[in-house]
Design a protein around this nucleic acid. Sequence first.
DNA 1: CATCTGACCTAGT
DNA 2: AACTAGGCCAGAT
Length: 113
Amino acid sequence: MKLSPEEFKQAVFDLTRLIPSGRVSTYGAIAHCIGASGASRRVGWALNQCFGEIPPVPAHRVVNRLGLLTGAVHFPDDAPMARQLREEGIQVADNQVVGFDEVFWDPWEAGNG
DNA sequence: CATCTGACCTAGT
DNA sequence: AACTAGGCCAGAT
């Protein structure tokens, strides 16, 4: 299953929007869920375009494999990544999610659970 | 046009 | 378990 750039971006957005509050997901999980395992980089690239999208995409709920807020540097000053996470109850320390394994949410639960 | 980099992960040894 | 190599597409130089 191969997705077009538009479908890929949409898939990433839709899947990211499915991430429940107080939870976080990873690029690989999303990429793997949409059938783009290995293309994790594109997930970040797509999420980079999430700003200004309607409905808004909680890209702040997406972190890397280690729970590091690697994308925080690309977030707007009005909506810092770590801050939005804290707004949902997720604790962050040094650009790293606290209890990552506990707040980790697998996109697979989006349509299976 | 060619080369390197980037919100990263998976596979092989 | 630790290390090395490959993938994936687009943007920037």
